[in-house]
Amino acid sequence: MRARAGWKLAAGVLAGMYAAVLGAGYLAPYDATEQHREAPLRAPAAMQFERGRLVVADAISGRKVAVHWFSGGHLFGAEAPALYFPLGSDEFGRDQFSRILYGGRISLMAALLGAMVSLGLGLAAGLMSALGPVWLDAVLMRLGEVCLALPWLYLLLGVRAFLPLDLSPEAVFVVFVVLAGMLGWARPARLFRGLGLSLKQAGYVEASRGFGASRWYVARRHMLSELRGVVGTQGALLVPQFLLAEVTLSLFGLGINEPGVSWGTMLDVVRQPAMLAMNPWLAMPVLVLVPVFLCFQVCADAMAR
């Protein structure tokens, strides 16, 4: 019963998260790319209650100014020229809070997309391996080994070279996530095959085969239901992996480019110990990532039951 409630809560949080990033245009006080060069690297600041209204310290002068609500097409913000960064600002004086919201758009979508592509391909290949003829099994599994072994970074670098430079950062990024998803099929496929093989031998599958059910009927009817647990487990593993893969991709110039923003690129700061030690709030996206991962897991667990 508790697990069920936990699942609902997690799904609710995730839905809220998706709604928030989609509504970033209204929720975020600034545009993600808006630079305030006179106020770089400001620490997060809380709103304060003073004389019956909420006030904040201006990021430039430190003067207290009133918070404006529902004005100028934004939920809240300080009246210009005053600046208010609830979660601090980065080295260009861009609002971290706004960037987290806008960045979530690409991160949340891309991770899901990549995981789905990988999982779908892996499932298909794994089942074909387990149920299909022996030669297909051998071909698919050896192909999987090739896929696991090759340094795909080269391919990604090559693909980048062929993509036009004026493609929008988001489009480039989606290409890479889908590619990465396509390259990641081998590991789940291997697991699905192992499971498929053992299930195939289980009595009830034999029995339905005995009743003249076709291979694909067997796959659909019995195995998919049995495989749900593993699919859920793999999904919960893959989504965070794809969220983080982007950090690695951006190392090689394959991630999301400026002015695009994503949690992965924001988290690049964790590789810079000095920057992190001096401006710890720059790692704030972690505080969003961890609950998101957690919710994905809870949901996956629930699906597995």
Binding site: L157, R160, A161, L165, D166, L167, S168, P169, S250, F252, G253, L254, N257, E258, P259
Partner: peptide
Amino acid sequence: VEVVPLEFRAMLDR
């Protein structure tokens, strides 16, 4: 303006 960071050698080659 689109900024496109490319991996070092890929950029030099390009």
